[in-house]
Design a protein around this nucleic acid. Sequence first.
DNA 1: GATGGTTGTCGAACCGGTTCGCGTGAAGTG
DNA 2: CACTTCACGCGAACCGGTTCGACAACCATC
Lengths: 340, 340
Amino acid sequence: MNIGEIARRAGVSRSTVSYALSGKRPVSDETRRKIQDVIDELGYRPNASARALANGRTSTIGLVFPPAGNHYTGMQLDFIGSVVEAAAAHDYDVLLSPSGVDSDRSFQRLLGERRVDGAILMEIRLKDDRVDHLAELDFPAVAIGRTAHPESGWWVGLDHTALAAACVHHLADLGHRRVAFVNRPEQLLRAGYESAHRGLEGFTKAAAERGLTVRTYCCGDDAASGQACLERILHDDPATTGLVTLNEAALGGLYRGLAQAGRHVPRDFSVTGVVAGRWAETVTPQLTAADVPAEEMGRRAVDLLIERLDHPGAPPRHHLLAPPISLRASTGPAGGTPSA
Amino acid sequence: MNIGEIARRAGVSRSTVSYALSGKRPVSDETRRKIQDVIDELGYRPNASARALANGRTSTIGLVFPPAGNHYTGMQLDFIGSVVEAAAAHDYDVLLSPSGVDSDRSFQRLLGERRVDGAILMEIRLKDDRVDHLAELDFPAVAIGRTAHPESGWWVGLDHTALAAACVHHLADLGHRRVAFVNRPEQLLRAGYESAHRGLEGFTKAAAERGLTVRTYCCGDDAASGQACLERILHDDPATTGLVTLNEAALGGLYRGLAQAGRHVPRDFSVTGVVAGRWAETVTPQLTAADVPAEEMGRRAVDLLIERLDHPGAPPRHHLLAPPISLRASTGPAGGTPSA
DNA sequence: GATGGTTGTCGAACCGGTTCGCGTGAAGTG
DNA sequence: CACTTCACGCGAACCGGTTCGACAACCATC
């Protein structure tokens, strides 16, 4: 069931079989047919490892997975799904690499052992060792997210600054004056996660421009933390009438906290933020939010990577996306009927 | 940066380097040290393709991903995460394979081209070609889910029949007499998805035992479908006071439908079902449900697969799990205060 | 009729590891 | 001291593909 066996049965040499399959040199119709018959009969498929060894390409891309053990968000699922799908369309497989506990080790596996032709990185930090390291090696990689110095890199990113600002303006336009910001967990902020930083920055600036009174919070990536966070918000400033969040996983908990505090959304309290569209629609009332186009981002990341693989030395490219806010049902004018 | 280069610089033969690394034959401390020094200096790592070609193992397992293009559920994300993590603990990588549009093709890629040593299958059907095919080839695979004839296979499954029945008994014990069942989408049911079938079966049987009046529904995997489904339920039988669902993705929509119909959960209407624990906690009120131990299942699937890889010819093993119902806040006695 | 360009095929080398058989020198044994 | 045993290292073959150079056969040209 290897190429030699096929060659023997077809009565030709191994190289001829190879050329018949790749088309890189002419092969007569008759031999091609003979070879194809044998292949069909035996169900032969060339061994991927051997092929990878010979031509130096694995036809596999690595997807560097966010730290495991923690909670995954729906957005990440959407990224993974779309990356796998887009890669399949280009005849690439996707190898998942947990950048968890021992990220160096799995990085070494991917790159050092040449398991993949290129990589897609998720959960980028403003100062990201992985990105720097790959750039230094000139290893084909595309980031979903951008570092503090994105000019020279390959990435597809979300303009979190603008999106968070848009959320603030949306609330300000509705008359809200006291607004809270619910960020990703503190450890991620401290680690320099770009969405957490840029989102916070955009929120803070825009709030200052509009003269809002704000408080900012970090919140764990789960419902219980969201609920606790909301309790703190209302405890710290009961006059708060709106919040902006980047924390998809905490959303359900934030809603629960509001319900338990007797604040009706959107009459008493407005909620908005940056969330993957599909998940914004699972809560009631549906979330008015800047919908993260996770599928598009995954697809574009793959397209960029393929382009980079096909044209080594091409100048860096990137896409910065800033989807508009989708108006749904979770925001309304300030000063509805105050409860309690 | 290949093994020959290391050998030259260390002044030994290639085979000696190989033995120094693998430990399969004795190597003197001195040469081992010399070799190690060179390796450390150059940051050498053996090429994975070459190694795979030589010893016939790729150290990679394939995870056959659910049909793409559709919506993914949170449960699937949990499976993926835990599989990746567990595989990493055994020094295996995970290759994602979309079993989407052209499932034969990606199957051929995985198996025919020998990209993986074994596979884990998700979204099993009662009569599943993939499972049969792999069993026929004696290819090391483990299913997350079980077919109609699971005796001879390797799998880790959930006792959907028992879980759905437990949900029914829970509602019946609370006095509910008219109950609906919200299943996965109709196309999945027709395709023979085991959770949809066994869940329906368990629900129907238990309801008959308890003499309940029931209706069963299929529902798309998204919030909008959930909402529509709930409207249909109340339209078909306004006296319905409870539902059991297997459809995690529709949950948010079901809740919204209830809210819009003015039915308070759990006072007027009880909701329960089979859902991954983390997602049961994102809705308000939190869902009383049989928590799908997705992480445990993923981990166990990997452990079984590794065992099968390490001991070819070992007799089939499997795990059937039936987690208890976690009492949360979405169910209550029938005949609270009827609204409207 | 010598010259030149295609077309189709083959053998050999190569990709970067692993593994087997053999040779050598040193240590252990009676 | 001859004889086994063992530790250690080397060279060669192999895994299953791809690719290069060579060559033969065929056709067209001047």
